[in-house]
Write a protein that binds this DNA or RNA. Structure first.
Lengths: 250, 250
DNA sequence: TAGTGGTCTAGACCACATA
DNA sequence: ATGTGGTCTAGACCACTAG
């Protein structure tokens, strides 16, 4: 085949990196820089194969991995699209609290506060900021069928989420991550959670209308965007009397 | 190319099933029937391509999916192997409780009881048995560094785990699923868990050396083997003061 | 009808492990 | 040296969607 002037040769480097991995990285970089917005992706198999001077199969393998990491969505006959948290299929990817009985149901958010604050040592460390850096603190109550179930505290880097206010939060409908993605150009890719059981504190008890000390599920999350950059710390206290956290081990 | 007398034609059926899916299913059936034991897999790409009269790429795609589902493990230069719970890489796939500080550490099991029983309505339903069917009930205490952390109750279909006794459990070393796989020919493929926070009952409190009512994490699991057959119900009470349940959302 | 993703081929060569 | 998995090609055809 012809040369790939933009890419590394096949076996001339000290550490071998497959062609499709290089292509994937190029595509991720383009996504990261917002070259394509959520919606249709400007690349088709043939076009990219031409652009990078590789075969269609190699491009396909790169996109295979992007699809596996939920960065893009493929629809047969239509095209490949930048994934978005607005889509129904993404709704329950980051929401694991579901009712014991019946089908998963959409949650309703009520925002209790949204204010600028300074990151304490722990939040700063987890967000990769210096201690005392400006953050935005959001407190919200998640309800299912009018029943309050989760009290969430969020800490977001102010540098990224500048302009996030209680009003904008209240005006938004749909998943919070959908707002972050469309209004602040920050798309959550993955998250790590730590779960513990502990007794409800005063705030939690009041918000969830339970007694202090009632066992609640603490869900402690760090969310990451492109390039494994931590951009959200979230701590939720969940009442699990008629709800549970569901997880699949595979 | 030549015909595939054993497989469906490419586009002559009402519902189109890709060749590699058919091959994958054949391989899963062989695994299920124990045609290959954990250890080396008797197929190499070339051999299978010949056996099924398809190209190597198609066989590869079938094995790709098996590897993705952790049914087999590929090792470059060596071969493809039936996955086993004995391997180190599988150790923490079904064990999500880890210490808050420091690296994940191996757990130590102490078996408190192992007896035949009759399945109550709930366990029977979840195992796909009739109510009152014979099951084996195991109770064990999981400790990390001599500290008791999890009290587990297991219910297993007696028909499958016939001969499981406290002695055999005590004599075994390593993951429990390793024993099930090597001694009872039943390999756990995936599991579904429900997590709740609740107060410790008397048994749990005694075993974990805590007060009654102390918040503990309830981990309720159903495990499945080949063909999505439920073969274990497990309920664990976890003390999460210095440990947590970790989960990755992706 | 055209364009997209999805499958499949036949063969080549590279990377890695083992004997 | 041999055999394994891993990558890559160039092209073909099928399945699906939309104009």
């Amino acid at each position: 085949m012809s040369a790939n002037p933009d890419l590394l040769g096949k076996s001339r480097t000290a550490v071998f990196t497959p062609l499709y991995k290089q292509i994937k990285q190029l595509l991720v970089s383009s996504l990261e820089q917002g070259e394509w917005k959520p919606g249709e992706l400007e690349f088709a198999r043939n076009e990219l194969a031409g652009r990078y001077h590789v075969s269609q199969g190699t491009v396909r393998k790169a996109i295979d991995e992007l699809a596996g990491e939920n960065l893009v969505v493929r629809r047969q006959g239509r095209g490949t699209f930048v994934a978005t948290h607005q889509e129904p299929r993404a709704q329950f990817r980051f929401l694991r609290i579901v009712p014991d009985q019946g089908e998963p149901v959409a949650a309703h958010s009520r925002f209790l506060s949204c204010s600028r604050a300074r990151a304490d040592a722990e939040v700063a460390q987890r967000l990769g900021l210096r201690s005392g850096a400006a953050v935005i603190h959001v407190r919200r109550l998640l309800s299912f069928d009018e029943v309050p179930v989760v009290l969430d505290d969020l800490w977001l880097p102010a540098a990224i989420f500048k302009g996030l206010t209680a009003e904008r939060l209240a005006a938004h409908h749909g998943p919070l991550y959908g707002l972050f993605e469309s209004e602040f150009g920050t798309r959550m890719i993955r998250a790590e959670e730590r779960l513990k059981a502990l007794g409800a504190d005063a705030d939690t008890a009041a918000a969830l209308k339970i007694d202090r000390g009632t066992p609640v599920l603490l869900v402690d999350r760090v969310s990451y965007t492109y390039g494994d950059r931590a951009v959200e710390v979230r701590r939720g206290w969940c009442l699990t009397d008629r709800f549970h956290y569901r997880n699949a081990l595979s």
